[in-house]
Simulated assay, not measured.
Amino acid sequence: MKCIVGLGNPGKKYESTRHNAGFMVIDELLKRHGWELNKKKFNGYYAMEHLDAEKVILLKPQTYMNLSGQSIRPLIDYYGIEPEDVLVIYDDLDLPTGRIRLRQKGGHGGHNGIRSTIDHLGTKEFKRIRIGVGRPDDSTSVIDYVLGSFPKAELEEVDSSIQKAADACEAWIGDSFPVVMNKFNS
Rank of each mutant, 00 (worst) to 15 (best):
E28W: 03
I129C: 10
A47P: 14
E49P: 01
R135V: 07
G132Y: 01
K2C: 09
L93S: 05
S16P: 01
P83W: 09
D138E: 02
S16Y: 13
T140N: 07
T117Q: 12
Q70F: 09
A165P: 11
Q70A: 11
T117I: 08
P136A: 09
F23Y: 13
I81G: 06
C169H: 00
G113Y: 04
Y64I: 06
G44L: 00
A53N: 15
Y14M: 07
S68T: 05
W172P: 10
V158S: 02
G148Y: 04
E157G: 08
D144A: 11
Q70W: 05
V180N: 07
E125Q: 15
S116W: 13
Y46H: 09
G106E: 11
G8M: 02
N9A: 10
R130D: 00
I89D: 03
F126R: 13
R32M: 07
I118H: 05
N182K: 12
W35A: 08
V88W: 03
N38K: 13
L75T: 02
H108V: 03
Y78M: 08
T140E: 02
A166L: 04
G106F: 06
S68C: 10
G80M: 11
K55D: 15
G134H: 12
G80S: 10
T17L: 04
M181I: 15
I57V: 14
F42G: 14
V88G: 05
F126G: 12
D175W: 07
I173S: 00
N38A: 03
A153M: 07
N66A: 06
P61C: 05
Y45A: 04
H33W: 01
T123D: 09
P136F: 11
D85N: 15
P178N: 09
I76S: 02
K164R: 15
E82Y: 05
D77R: 13
S141Y: 12
L121R: 15
K13M: 05
I76N: 01
R32T: 06
L58I: 04
C169S: 04
G34M: 08
I129M: 07
R115W: 04
E36I: 05
G6N: 01
E82Q: 11
R99C: 14
S68V: 06
G132S: 05
V180E: 03
G11M: 10
K13N: 03
H120F: 12
P74E: 02
Q163H: 13
S186Y: 10
V5F: 04
L87I: 05
R99E: 15
M48N: 11
G132Q: 04
Y79T: 02
A53P: 00
D144R: 08
Y145V: 10
F23Q: 02
K40C: 12
L7P: 02
P10S: 11
G113N: 10
D77M: 11
G174Y: 08
I76P: 00
S16E: 07
G134Y: 07
D52E: 13
R103I: 02
I100L: 14
V133S: 07
E36R: 15
L155F: 10
S141L: 12
M181S: 09
E28N: 05
P10T: 06
W172N: 08
L59E: 00
K164P: 13
P178K: 09
D137K: 14
Y78T: 08
H108N: 15
K39G: 08
A21K: 06
H120P: 12
